[in-house]
Simulated assay, not measured.
Amino acid sequence: MGAVVNCAAYADGRRVANVELNAINQILQQPDKFIWIGLHEPGEEILERVQDEFNLHDLAIEDAHTAHQRPKIETYGESLFIVLRTAQMNSEEHCIDFGETHFFLGHNFIISVRHRSTLSYAEVRARCESTPHLLRKGPGFALYAVMDSIVDQYFPVIDALERELEILEENIFKKKTSRETTAQIYWLKRELLSVKRAVSPLIDVCNRLTRFDLELISEDTRPYFRDIYDHVLRINEMVDTGRELLNNVLDANFSMISISQNEVSKKFAGWAAIIGVPTMIAGIYGMNFKFMPELDWQFGYPLALALTLGSCMILYLFFKRSGWL
């Protein structure tokens, strides 16, 4: 079955056998073993078989099948249902690819269900199998290992968004502002908001996993979830800082646009004043009064022309020195 990525039995922290779905019940009856199953985009048939084998709740199975869930943790009888959102930076399409991973956790089993995520957990499983002294803690440690891998994937995403923010700041203060700059700012705000929605609920999830009312998480495993909790808090703070910086960048962008518009307005006003001088002089001589002594004077034309050019030059130098031109 293509949806079943891995299904194995573990005893004393070591893999003892690969197991078929129809043989799971035999392993579950052995108290010294636990099952670790990895599913990728499973169909209804496989989820129903898993539900029957592990006695999972209908609502949890429905959520695992439809996906599109916000991060959460729910208790159904003797099992936990946990939802996490995965994030990867897509450099080709210049966006963040979000997926989901759902977990079913019991005393002797852990099931992970991946949706819309290309990141395999084979490496995480291999790391756990290489440290049997930790994996013997049971399904709780396997849950920690996968959750820690998912949370750590957010750091490269945040780093990529911070680099985009640095480029934006340089463009705003070193280059002319444009519509593309404003659009990029709003794109970054939208991406950070998406990360915020994925990370913020994890604070409550990790907090609950460290509490003593969840018997499925052994006492010696809870400190590991506190480590994830610290990472989630750090990521959440980084997102909040990035969003605050983006608001400042947006204000700076609008300020630079306003300054640029004012510069253009000053140039228009300066040239309008310069052009107004010859217009005024030409208007005076165009009134066609009968008695205008300078019309009969032989130096009248050169004087009017010199006055026009001189006045325009004086105004030009004045506006140039004032920074209007």
Score class of each variant (00 low, 15 high):
residue 243 R to S: 07
residue 95 C to M: 12
residue 184 Q to V: 00
residue 214 L to W: 10
residue 314 I to N: 06
residue 73 I to W: 05
residue 310 G to R: 06
residue 157 V to Y: 06
residue 287 M to P: 01
residue 172 I to L: 08
residue 171 N to Y: 07
residue 196 K to F: 14
residue 223 P to M: 10
residue 268 F to G: 01
residue 88 Q to R: 15
residue 48 E to S: 13
residue 312 C to T: 08
residue 221 T to G: 01
residue 63 D to G: 04
residue 32 D to Y: 04
residue 260 S to Y: 11
residue 289 F to M: 00
residue 70 R to K: 13
residue 90 N to Q: 07
residue 93 E to A: 14
residue 192 L to V: 00
residue 161 L to H: 05
residue 323 G to W: 07
residue 267 K to Y: 10
residue 31 P to L: 07
residue 305 L to D: 04
residue 15 R to G: 02
residue 169 E to Q: 14
residue 117 S to T: 14
residue 118 T to Y: 12
residue 247 N to R: 13
residue 9 A to Q: 02
residue 182 T to G: 13
residue 281 I to A: 05
residue 82 I to D: 03
residue 266 K to A: 11
residue 73 I to T: 02
residue 177 T to D: 04
residue 140 G to S: 11
residue 13 G to N: 03
residue 170 E to N: 13
residue 39 L to T: 01
residue 148 D to F: 10
residue 109 F to E: 02
residue 226 R to V: 00
residue 57 H to A: 12
residue 126 A to E: 14
residue 15 R to K: 15
residue 245 L to E: 09
residue 304 A to C: 09
residue 89 M to G: 00
residue 228 I to P: 06
residue 98 F to M: 04
residue 264 V to S: 11
residue 227 D to M: 08
residue 187 W to R: 15
residue 85 R to T: 02
residue 104 F to D: 01
residue 162 E to C: 02
residue 53 E to H: 12
residue 64 A to G: 07
residue 228 I to Y: 11
residue 297 W to M: 00
residue 216 L to H: 07
residue 297 W to L: 00
residue 16 V to T: 09
residue 226 R to S: 13
residue 168 L to C: 08
residue 134 L to G: 03
residue 300 G to Q: 03
residue 116 R to K: 14
residue 270 G to W: 11
residue 81 F to K: 02
residue 288 N to G: 09
residue 84 L to Y: 10
residue 285 Y to V: 00
residue 119 L to M: 13
residue 35 I to S: 02
residue 310 G to T: 09
residue 5 V to L: 12
residue 204 D to Y: 14
residue 104 F to L: 03
residue 254 F to D: 09
residue 4 V to H: 06
residue 210 T to N: 09
residue 295 L to A: 05
residue 29 Q to H: 13
residue 93 E to F: 14
residue 186 Y to R: 05
residue 302 P to V: 03
residue 61 I to S: 05
residue 320 K to Y: 09
residue 17 A to E: 10
residue 205 V to L: 11
residue 291 F to W: 13
residue 256 M to T: 08
residue 262 N to L: 09
residue 166 E to R: 11
residue 232 V to N: 08
residue 309 L to Q: 07
residue 198 A to Q: 05
residue 63 D to K: 04
residue 135 L to I: 02
residue 54 F to N: 02
residue 36 W to D: 01
residue 56 L to M: 08
residue 100 E to M: 03
residue 49 R to L: 12
residue 144 Y to T: 01
residue 178 S to C: 06
residue 93 E to M: 12
residue 85 R to D: 07
residue 233 L to I: 14
residue 192 L to G: 03
residue 118 T to E: 15
residue 211 R to M: 13
residue 138 G to W: 03
residue 275 I to F: 15
residue 109 F to M: 02
residue 282 A to R: 07
residue 294 E to G: 07
residue 85 R to G: 04
residue 187 W to V: 00
residue 163 R to I: 08
residue 279 T to H: 07
residue 186 Y to C: 00
residue 161 L to V: 05
residue 256 M to I: 08
residue 324 W to A: 04
residue 209 L to S: 04
residue 193 L to D: 09
residue 199 V to K: 06
residue 321 R to A: 10
residue 65 H to S: 09
residue 254 F to W: 08
residue 204 D to T: 11
residue 46 I to W: 05
residue 80 L to F: 10
residue 293 P to M: 05
residue 284 I to L: 15
residue 87 A to N: 03
residue 157 V to D: 01
residue 145 A to E: 05
residue 147 M to R: 01
residue 8 A to R: 10
residue 137 K to R: 15
residue 122 A to S: 15
residue 169 E to P: 05
residue 298 Q to E: 15
residue 272 A to T: 12
residue 85 R to E: 11
